[in-house]
């Protein structure tokens, strides 16, 4: 599984980064960046919580490496 960010949707709320700093950060413009996109099995729940924390659904989990 891999995290994908739709940066054009991001509204800089930062919720996802607060929940999942292992994979996500904001850049200087305040838009989300995926700092590590691969999701290990044990991380799945935390990653999904980070994704649900986004009010505008800017983050998605996709299949594959």
């Amino acid at each position: 599984m891999r995290i994908e960010a739709k940066r054009h949707l991001c509204q800089s709320y930062g919720n996802c980064v607060a929940i999942d700093p292992e994979h996500l950060d904001l850049d200087d413009e305040g838009l989300v960046v995926v700092t590590r996109d691969s999701v290990a099995d044990g991380e799945l729940a935390a990653v999904q919580a980070g994704i649900r924390s986004c009010p505008v659904n800017a983050l998605v989990l996709v299949e594959g490496e």
Partner: peptide
């Protein structure tokens, strides 16, 4: 927003 991430 980036400052707020650091705060949180």
């Amino acid at each position: 927003p980036r400052g707020m991430v650091a705060v949180r």
